[in-house]
């Protein structure tokens, strides 16, 4: 995929609106990046020079922030995003075994998107559902007390 150096006019308008909405914020960069990801599905490289200009920051500084945080994607995610908790409370309830099962059923490894773009599988370190582990988030919907059958249902749903 070629990297777009310049945003399309419509995208540029969206970005300008986001920057304007946060003009009065103290420490606006994270809220801006969250809004960009919400609007574009990822944080495109082409937004960097525009942010640099608007916030009077260095290019390396903005790139450094984007790359520091796990949440910000350089590429769009798949049509569905499955986040499976891999932290200790879920491990105690067989989370590792379930994680391998999910990789097999979804046909994709962690941190990866299927070639057909249907699903991205990501680890998450705690959803705060530790008393009903193992837990997952499927397209924003929380699921607790996961077992193999529940993972199978999720796979059927997102691969349909």
């Amino acid at each position: 995929m070629p990297v777009a150096d310049v945003l399309e006019p419509h995208a540029r308008q969206t970005l300008d609106d986001i920057l304007r909405a946060h003009a009065a914020d103290e420490g606006p960069l994270l809220p801006i990046l969250h809004d960009i990801q919400a609007a574009f599905g990822h944080v495109p490289q082409a937004v960097v020079p525009v942010i640099v200009e608007a916030l009077n920051l260095g290019k390396a500084e903005v790139h450094g922030v984007i790359s520091f945080y796990h949440d910000f994607r350089a590429e769009p995610a798949g049509r569905s995003v499955v986040k499976l908790c891999r932290a200790e409370a879920c491990q105690a309830m067989g989370g590792d075994h379930l994680a391998h099962h999910a990789e097999r059923k979804l046909g994709v490894g962690f941190h990866e998107t299927r070639a057909d773009g249907k699903v991205t599988l990501e680890p998450v370190y705690c959803l705060g559902l530790c008393a009903c582990a193992p837990a997952a988030m499927v397209n924003g919907r929380l699921v607790g007390r996961l077992d193999e059958a529940a993972v199978d249902r999720i796979a059927t749903e997102v691969l349909a």
Binding site: E26, G27, P28, L29, L30, L33, V65, D71, F72
Partner: peptide
């Protein structure tokens, strides 16, 4: 934005500052 270390107070302040 998904960084565990931001639970540490000084790291949180840096994050809050962008």
């Amino acid at each position: 934005a998904g960084a565990y270390v931001c639970g540490e107070e000084t790291s949180l302040l840096n994050s809050l500052e962008g």
